[in-house]
Design a binder for these strands. Structure first.
Length: 576
DNA sequence: ATAGGGTTAG
C-alpha cells in the first residue's frame, strides 16, 4: 500500500472525532430552534430572525474550521496534541456560538413589538432575494416591478441580488437594464452590481465586454475593488492571457500596501491559471511568494496545488502536498478527494481510486456526480464493467440520477466486451430512470451489435434512432459502412454513404478509408482512384492507412508504377 | 447583507 493511503487511515480517526462534535452541535442547534418556535406567537417575525441565526451559525462553523488550521501551524509537538487543540477550540467556539445565539433570541424577543412594522414593510424585498437565490428570476422580476410601480423602491442589496441572478443566468441585457434604471431613479448601483455584470460577461466568454464594463464603472465614480480584479484575473487566466493576468495582479499588489488574507484568493487564481496553462514553475513561484509573505494558505490553495501537479503528471509531488495538507489539519473536502480519485483513475489505478472513494464516504464527505463519473469511467477503461455497474447502483441508491454520459460509458464498455445482453439491460434501466438515450448511446449499442456480427440488428437500431428524432453522425455511419464493407455488402455500403450525404453529414477520413477498402476488395479500381482523389482534395488530414490499402492492392495487381507513384505522393504528405 | 478562487470532459 502506498504511504499516502496510510496517512489517510491515520487522519481518519482525528476527522471522525471532528465529525462527531459537529453532529452534536447540530442536535443542540435543532433543540434551540425547537424551543424558539414553541415559545413565540408571531411566527412571521421569527422566520426572519431564524434566517439570520442560521447564517451566523454557518459562518461560525466556517470560522472554527479555519481556526483549526491556523492553530496547528504554531504547534509542532505532534498529531495527537494537534487533535486535542482542534477539539478544544471547537468546543470553545461552540459555547461562544450558543451564547451569541441565546443573546440574539433574547434581543429578538425584546424587539418584536416595534420591529414588526418595519420587517413587514421589507418583506417583498426579502421574497425577491429568496427568489433570486432560487433561480426563479421571472417571478423575482415581476414582484420587483410591482414594487416599483407601487413606488416602493427596494434597497441596493435587493437590486444586487436581482442583477446577480440575471447575470448568472446569462440574461445580461436585463441586468444592464436594471442597472440603467438604478442610475436613473436610484438607488445608485454599487461595486457588487458591476462585479456581477463583469462576471456575467466573463461567463459568456466575452472578456472584452467585461473590460468595457470595468471602465464604465470608473465613469460612474465607482472604484473597482479586489473582487473586481479577482474576476478579471480569473477570466484572463482562463483565456490563456497569463501575461495580462499577471500585470493586473501586480498592479493590484502595488495599490495595496497592506498585505493580508485578501492576497490569498488572487494568488490562488494566478497559481491555478499557471498550472492550467502548463507553467508549473510560475505556479510554484506564486506559491512560494505566498509562503514568503506569510499569507495563510487554505484548503482551496492546497487543492489547487495538488490538482496542478496531477495536471503536470507529477502524481508523486501531488501526493506529497496532499499529505502535507492533511498534516496541517485541513479537512479534505469533495474537491480534495475528487482530485485524487481523478488522478488515480487516469493512471489506471482503479483499486486505489475505489479505496479513496471508500475513505471519503466513511469520512462523511458525500461523493458527487463527478466522483462517480470518474470512477465509472476509469473502471470501464480498465474493462471492469461489472464493478462500474456497482457504482451506478450506488448512485441510484443515493438518488443521484446520472447524466447520459455515465450510462453510455457503461453501455459502451459492455459492448466492447461483446456483452450485448448487459448493454441492452443498462439501456433499459436508463430509460426506466427517465434518462433519454442520445446519439452516443445508440453508437455504443450499434458498435456492440456490429462487434457481435449482427449487422441487421445494428441497422434496425439506426432506424430506431431516426424514429426518436436523433440524427446519426459520422461515427454512426462509419460503424455501419465499415460493417457493410467487411461483409462485402457493396450496395448497403453505398446506400449508407448516400444517406450520410443526404443528411448533411460530413464524411471523414474513416468514411473514405472504409469505402476505399471496399472498392479495392471488389476490384473497382477506377472508383477507388476517384474516391482517393476526392479524399486528397477534401482538405482532411490523411493518415497512412488509405495509402497502404491502395499500395497493397496495386502490389497484388503487379502495377508497380502505381505503387511507386502512391509512395511518392505519401511522402509528400509527411511533415518535412 | 449582495459580488471573487479549486474537481470531469465522449
Amino acid at each position: 500500500m502506498q504511504p499516502l493511503l496510510l496517512v489517510w487511515e491515520e487522519s481518519q480517526i482525528l476527522l471522525r472525532i471532528l465529525n462527531g462534535s459537529f453532529q452534536t452541535l447540530d442536535v443542540i442547534k435543532e433543540r434551540i430552534f425547537h424551543d424558539l418556535f414553541c415559545s413565540k406567537a408571531n411566527l412571521d417575525v421569527i422566520d426572519m430572525r431564524q434566517d439570520n441565526i442560521v447564517q451566523n451559525v454557518n459562518r461560525d462553523e466556517q470560522g472554527s474550521k479555519d481556526w483549526s488550521s491556523k492553530g496547528n501551524e504554531s504547534n509542532q509537538e505532534g498529531d495527537s496534541t494537534v487533535g486535542f487543540n482542534v477539539l478544544d477550540a471547537m468546543l470553545k467556539r461552540s459555547l461562544d456560538r450558543l451564547k451569541s445565539m441565546r443573546e440574539r433570541i433574547l434581543s429578538a424577543e425584546a424587539g418584536i413589538s416595534n420591529c414588526t412594522l418595519e420587517i413587514n414593510f421589507n418583506k417583498d424585498a426579502y421574497v425577491v432575494r429568496a427568489m433570486c437565490l432560487d433561480g426563479k428570476l421571472g417571478a423575482a422580476l415581476s414582484l420587483w416591478w410591482n414594487m416599483i410601480q407601487n413606488s416602493i423602491v427596494p434597497d441596493v442589496i435587493t437590486h444586487n441580488y436581482l442583477i446577480n441572478g440575471l447575470c448568472k443566468n446569462g440574461e445580461l441585457e436585463k441586468a444592464e437594464w436594471i442597472v440603467r434604471g438604478m442610475l436613473y431613479r436610484g438607488p445608485s448601483p454599487t461595486c457588487a452590481a458591476y462585479n456581477s455584470l463583469i462576471r456575467g460577461y466573463c461567463l459568456m466568454n466575452d472578456v472584452d465586454k467585461a473590460l468595457n464594463t470595468f471602465s464604465t464603472m470608473a465613469n460612474h465614480g465607482i472604484i473597482p475593488n479586489r473582487v473586481t480584479c479577482n474576476i478579471l484575473v480569473h477570466a484572463l487566466c482562463k483565456k490563456g492571457l497569463l501575461e495580462q493576468a499577471k500585470n493586473l495582479f501586480y498592479k493590484l499588489l502595488s495599490k495595496n500596501h497592506v498585505r493580508g488574507s485578501s492576497d490569498l484568493i488572487t494568488s490562488t487564481i494566478m497559481m491555478d491559471g499557471c498550472f492550467k496553462n502548463g507553467d508549473t514553475d510560475q505556479a510554484l513561484a506564486f506559491w512560494k511568494r505566498m509562503l514568503k509573505e506569510r499569507i495563510q494558505v487554505d484548503k482551496v490553495s492546497y487543492n489547487v496545488v495538488v490538482h496542478g501537479f496531477c495536471l503536470s503528471h507529477d502524481e508523486g509531488t501531488a501526493y506529497k502536498y496532499s499529505c502535507e495538507m492533511l498534516k496541517l489539519g485541513f479537512v479534505p473536502d469533495v474537491y480534495s478527494y475528487n482530485t485524487l480519485v481523478g488522478a488515480l483513475c487516469r493512471q489506471g489505478k482503479t483499486s486505489d481510486a475505489c479505496y479513496i472513494y471508500d475513505v471519503m464516504t466513511r469520512m462523511g464527505v458525500i461523493p458527487d456526480q463527478i466522483t462517480y463519473k470518474m470512477v465509472i469511467h476509469g473502471l470501464c477503461i480498465n474493462k471492469e464493467i461489472d464493478r462500474a455497474t456497482c457504482f451506478l447502483d450506488y448512485m441510484l441508491e443515493n438518488s443521484i440520477i446520472p447524466e447520459p454520459l455515465v450510462w453510455n460509458v457503461i453501455i459502451d464498455g459492455y459492448g466492447r466486451c461483446g456483452d450485448i445482453q448487459k448493454a441492452s439491460y443498462i439501456r433499459g434501466k436508463m430509460v426506466a430512470f427517465g434518462v433519454l438515450p442520445n446519439i452516443y448511446t445508440y453508437n455504443a449499442l450499434i458498435y456492440a451489435q456490429i462487434k457481435s456480427g449482427n449487422f441487421s440488428a445494428a441497422q434496425s437500431l439506426e432506424k430506431e434512432m431516426l424514429l426518436y428524432g436523433l440524427t446519426p453522425d459520422s461515427v454512426t455511419y462509419n460503424l455501419l459502412i465499415g460493417a457493410a464493407c467487411n461483409l462485402g455488402l457493396l450496395h448497403s455500403a453505398l446506400q449508407l454513404h448516400d444517406e450520410l450525404l443526404r443528411k448533411g453529414c460530413q464524411p471523414d477520413v474513416i468514411t473514405y478509408t472504409e469505402l476505399l477498402k471496399l472498392f479495392c476488395l471488389q476490384g473497382m479500381m477506377r472508383e477507388a482512384d476517384k474516391l482517393f482523389g476526392k479524399l486528397l482534395a477534401s482538405g482532411l488530414a490523411v493518415d497512412h492507412v488509405p495509402f497502404l490499402i491502395l499500395m497493397k492492392r496495386y502490389c497484388r495487381m503487379r502495377e508497380y508504377n502505381k505503387v511507386y507513384d502512391l509512395y511518392q505522393q505519401w511522402l509528400m504528405t509527411m511533415p518535412r
